[in-house]
């Protein structure tokens, strides 16, 4: 009989504690981020798709078509097209396409690039209707930027 009343009392007490907790939370500030309106800051180490760094002198990319990134890529997802021009027979970059559907963001290409011409972008809002939407042409993207 004593246990019966004790149970009721303890139960009621714990219920009240629960209510106190939730009403307290109700007046605390909101912790969620309102995504399309607000965005979290992306940490610098985030690995998105590849992008060119801009050469401040030329305004273009630093890439000299040494093809180390292509050689280092374990998934063979980088394809580069170039043309040879001028007296020094210099390689001029025509297109630099990363197949993002196969890339595993291992970062070997970024490490291999001694000139620092490529880096990971912070882009995470990617959406597309076809596989081809994820073949990123870095040259065109640099021009657009």
């Amino acid at each position: 009989m004593i246990k019966y009343f004790k149970d009721i009392f303890l139960g009621a007490q714990s219920l009240l504690v629960g209510l106190w907790v939730t009403i307290g939370y109700m007046f605390k500030p909101i912790v969620t981020v309102q995504y399309p309106r607000e965005k979290n800051k992306i940490p610098p180490a985030y690995r998105g798709h590849l992008e060119f760094t801009r050469d401040p002198e030329t305004g273009g990319s630093r890439c000299v078509v040494c093809l180390r990134c292509v050689q280092s890529c374990p998934s063979k997802c980088i394809s580069i097209d170039w043309e040879i021009k001028g007296e020094k027979r210099k390689r001029i970059l025509k297109s630099y396409v990363q197949d993002f559907t196969r890339c595993s963001q291992c970062g070997l290409c970024v490490e291999a690039c001694e000139l620092g011409a490529i880096r990971f972008s912070n882009e995470y809002e990617l959406v597309g209707f076809a596989k081809e939407d994820f073949y990123f042409n870095l040259v065109k993207m640099l021009e657009k930027r």
């Binding site: 939730t22 939370y25 109700m26 605390k28 909101i30 912790v31 969620t32 309102q34």
Partner: peptide, 13 residues
């Protein structure tokens, strides 16, 4: 709204 604020989110906005 109450559900949202108890869970510390804003609810319908």
């Amino acid at each position: 709204k109450v559900a949202g604020h108890i869970q510390r989110r804003p609810g319908p906005m």
